[in-house]
């Protein structure tokens, strides 16, 4: 059984921040990742601060300018089934529906999904790896079939979230609350590559909380999709996932984001593929070329080169579905 801890369930964000500032605390939203980390000894907090009593952190609502606000403790099921999400941001609804299992979607939250700890089996196992303060990454020369193609440095895990790429594709912003007030960060900059900081996954300070994510108002002519390949047809993390969001005028691509998951420690923008699409009409041939461009800069490890053709095919397939 995991070590014991003090459990508190505040009702306001201000109380939560006070608890975090005191140190040694970990946030509990859905609990599905936290309890795993506690059992595996990845996290050993002296107190667990439950967010389930903080009503202001939960729910989905339209803002005055047409943006959509999603509270951090909104569940994945609520996101996947919300009429405004399904209608205006179908790629996000698809991504939420492809996370894990119905039970975990009922429990898992937006904030928890974005802030989950790495799933690398060395990190989760009893290896004192670099990310845990040791001096080596065991995956680099070890069993690295589920590890990264891009941005690896000191640590080679992949961000496992399906929501993160869908939200980055939509140009979402993360709203962070701390004792100094609110700061807004483009979600793309919310995640940290190991080269930036190999022991923290996000820009959150220990006394800050991700309060909500805000999506820009939908643009006319915009379309989005999320695709994911996994080893099982259900309940599995993405080997590779891709979120595409694009806006067209008279068939010509004016804006586009192609964001991969399962290939880097952060959601990974396929910028070369994006550049290829801009100013052109999307057809099957262009989709295939964009697939190849999306793999530019990939550095496979010993056992994960299969992800390169996989991501090419997945990007091509996602783009063809929007052509």
């Amino acid at each position: 059984m995991m070590p014991n801890f003090e459990y508190v369930r505040p009702t306001t964000v201000a109380e939560v921040l006070t608890r975090l500032a005191a140190g040694g605390a970990r946030l509990h939203a859905g609990g599905s990742d936290l309890l795993g980390c506690l059992r595996e000894g990845i996290l050993v907090p002296s107190s667990v601060v439950s967010l389930s009593g903080v009503a202001e952190l939960r729910g989905i609502g339209e803002l005055a300018g047409g943006e959509l606000r999603i509270g951090a403790t909104t569940t994945l099921t609520e996101i996947a089934s919300h009429p405004l999400v399904r209608q205006r941001y179908p790629g996000l609804a698809q991504a939420a529906l492809l996370v894990a299992s119905p039970q975990l979607r009922n429990q898992g939250t937006l904030g928890g999904n974005l802030c989950q700890k790495p799933r690398c089996w060395y990190y989760r196992g009893s290896f004192q790896c670099a990310r845990k303060g040791g001096d080596t990454c065991y995956a680099y020369a070890g069993e690295n079939q589920y590890h990264c193609l891009f941005g690896g440095e000191t640590c080679y895990y992949v961000h496992p979230s399906d929501l993160a790429p869908a939200l980055v594709a939509l140009e979402a912003t993360a709203h962070i609350l701390g004792r100094g007030g609110r700061r807004v960060v483009p979600l793309e900059q919310f995640f940290l590559l190991p080269g930036q900081d190999f022991q923290h996954e996000t820009v959150l300070e220990h006394d800050e909380i991700l309060a909500e994510v805000v999506l820009p108002a939908p643009r006319p002519g915009a379309a989005g999709v999320y695709r994911k390949v996994r080893e099982r047809g259900c309940w599995d993390f993405a080997l590779v996932g891709v979120a595409v969001w694009l806006a067209r005028s008279a068939g010509v691509v004016e804006q586009v984001r192609i964001v991969l998951t399962g290939v880097a420690a952060t959601p990974w923008r396929a910028r070369a593929a994006e550049r290829l699409l801009l100013g052109r009409k999307l057809d099957a041939a262009l989709a295939a070329r964009a697939g190849v461009a999306a793999s530019e800069g990939a550095h496979p490890l010993a056992h994960n080169a299969y992800k390169v053709p996989m991501l090419r095919g997945l990007v091509e397939e996602a783009l063809r579905s929007l052509a």
Binding site: Y7, H28, G31, S32, L35, G36, V48, S50, T77, P102, Q103, L104, N106, Q107
Partner: peptide, 9 residues
């Protein structure tokens, strides 16, 4: 609503 009791405090 279905939920895993093992991952629920």
């Amino acid at each position: 609503v279905a939920r895993y009791a093992c991952l629920t405090l």
